[in-house]
Design a protein around this nucleic acid. Structure first.
Lengths: 141, 141
DNA sequence: GTGATTGCAAATCTTTTGCACTAAA
DNA sequence: TTTAGTGCAAAAGATTTGCAATCAC
């Protein structure tokens, strides 16, 4: 653990975030469970269960800070709540609406034959792909 | 207008929705402004300005019913609010986070060279692509 | 009439904010 | 110290819900 812990500390410092008790503990928890997709509420519950004394507001702050620092990614699959992705490098997602589960699709598994040019004055920031899946034989939902 | 109105009525009846005053008026408003992407709140304001007496709850009901009936689509670009798309056929989207604007990308403008197989027991429902764009020369977003 | 639809207000859920307190540098 | 970070509770924003009144068939 000390190696990973140390690693987390260095990464936090590298992006200009003070390695506070809460951030280190959350980073550790996220590292231990990676790769995965987590909501703020989920992480909050898990942190409390793990004995990490942290508030929900800090969970939100931390997830956004980690994301902005490039340590995590954000996955948008529905308008309800935000999912944060422990994998920040480029990749895509399967999403099963019925179960709410998100699965990673490695970047190499999808290739664009062609992509449209962005509107004038704009550049492409990134391309999100969500492959929506459902059980065989069931209706759309 | 009577042609379109009649058309809207028939389409509503065809999908099993009673052509009530509110649904017909909203359908008409949506038809008149198509193609576009609209939030519930936007449609609510426009409906009131157009003199359509309708509640926000009914706007939500109606948008979801139209979407479920296949008359509209839903675009997920962020976790804040839902956008409903007057175009229900397959296509993709540009999204400019800075302005909140959504632009259509015709289906032919994107081609997948390869797509991953869905997990066992699952089938692909549809593939959503959001090309996130930003102004040239500016940082992250 | 009868069941679907609507409006309203309250409730719910997720996320953000303001501010006093605490901790890292 | 000095500034960033945290917790709490309240606020904000989007959406849903319960139920009585209303409308389409």
């Amino acid at each position: 653990m000390s190696t990973l812990f140390c690693h987390a500390m260095h990464r936090l410092q590298a992006v200009g975030l003070r390695p506070t008790r809460q951030r280190l503990a959350l980073a550790q928890l996220l590292i231990d469970t990676a790769p995965r997709h987590v909501t703020a509420e989920q992480l909050y519950q898990e942190a409390r269960q793990a004995g990490i004394n942290v508030s929900l507001a800090t969970i939100y702050n931390t997830l956004h800070q980690f994301t902005q620092a490039g340590l995590m990614g954000e996955v948008v699959v529905g308008s309800g709540q935000s999912y944060f992705d422990t994998t920040s490098s480029a990749h895509y997602h399967f999403f099963d609406k019925a179960t709410g589960e998100i699965y990673d699709i490695p970047e190499e598994a999808i290739n664009f034959d062609k992509l449209p040019a962005p509107p004038p004055g704009k550049v492409i920031d990134r391309v999100d792909v969500v492959v929506r899946i459902r059980n065989e034989k069931r209706r759309g939902d």
